[in-house]
């Protein structure tokens, strides 16, 4: 469903991604590992279409469409979701209201009728339990005053509600205690189906213990230097990244 070919990308004239190739099929969970600053978030931003990155070479297709020509919201509406590494807060905007606006944007895009407030509340009350977030967070402003862990749970809540085809989880594990990590991993695992795909970005191995990725890719200095299965993660745990560097 997602085919990335030889992507080069730069920001402020500095090249950050230096030829990325990656192909994700329906139902697969890919993990990308790499040190801070290796370009993981940049890759996620390129896929989701953030403006301040310039793609200088390469192509990305999503379900056969040229993704790079689509607007940010068209990509989202086509089923691409990103759980942000650093979710922003939106003061004054009710969390549940925001999520309903997002869901309605999707329903409208699919030619379906919008979900009314009470049906939505019924739906969201179920979802909230899955991420172990108190209902009171629904009536607070989006991410405003949320702790790091609460923000991550809120991201996953959005994922579970919007039901994307491709979910990019950018360091969803960092800043979580072990219980929260388990909750979120479980939430993701239960959400997995034969059609839903995932790109999990992390620099810890521990998330992967719970999530069982099909493929692991190691990103160093803007390039995927090695791909493999879960055993690669174990090797990284033992030896670190330096043995992969030239």
């Amino acid at each position: 469903m997602l085919i990335i070919k030889n992507i080069h990308a730069s920001v402020d004239g500095k090249e950050i991604l230096k030829g990325i190739n990656l192909s994700i099929k329906p139902g697969e969970l890919h993990a990308i590992m790499g040190r801070n600053g290796s370009g993981k978030s940049t890759l996620a931003n390129i896929i989701t279409g953030r403006d301040n990155f310039l793609v200088t070479k390469g192509s990305i297709t999503y379900n056969g469409n040229n993704l790079l020509e689509m607007s940010i919201e068209d990509r989202a509406l086509a089923g691409i979701f990103m759980s942000f590494q650093y979710p922003v807060s939106i003061p004054g905007v009710n969390n549940a209201y925001f999520l309903r606006a997002a869901l309605n944007a999707k329903l409208k895009h699919q030619g379906k009728s919008e979900i009314n407030a009470s049906d939505f509340m019924r739906l969201i009350r179920e979802k909230v339990k899955l991420v172990n977030l108190d209902e009171s967070y629904l009536s607070r402003a989006v991410n405003d005053g949320f702790s790091g862990g609460e923000k991550k749970r809120n991201e996953i809540l959005q994922m579970l509600t919007l039901e994307p085809e491709l979910s990019i989880l950018d360091e969803t594990d960092s800043g979580l205690d072990i219980d929260a990590l388990k909750t979120i991993a479980e939430g993701v695992n239960n959400f997995r189906t034969e059609t839903r795909s995932f790109l999990a970005i992390t620099h810890y191995q521990r998330l992967l213990e719970y999530m069982h990725p099909d493929y692991i890719h190691v990103l160093i200095d803007g390039k995927i230097v090695k791909s493999g299965d879960i055993s690669l993660a174990n090797q990284l745990e033992e030896k670190g990244y330096s043995w992969l560097e030239k």
Partner: peptide
């Protein structure tokens, strides 16, 4: 902020 708009856009909100 640009980051707030990007966040909304990423959720399919124009």
């Amino acid at each position: 902020g640009e980051d707030q708009l990007f966040y909304c856009n990423q959720r399919g909100i124009s």
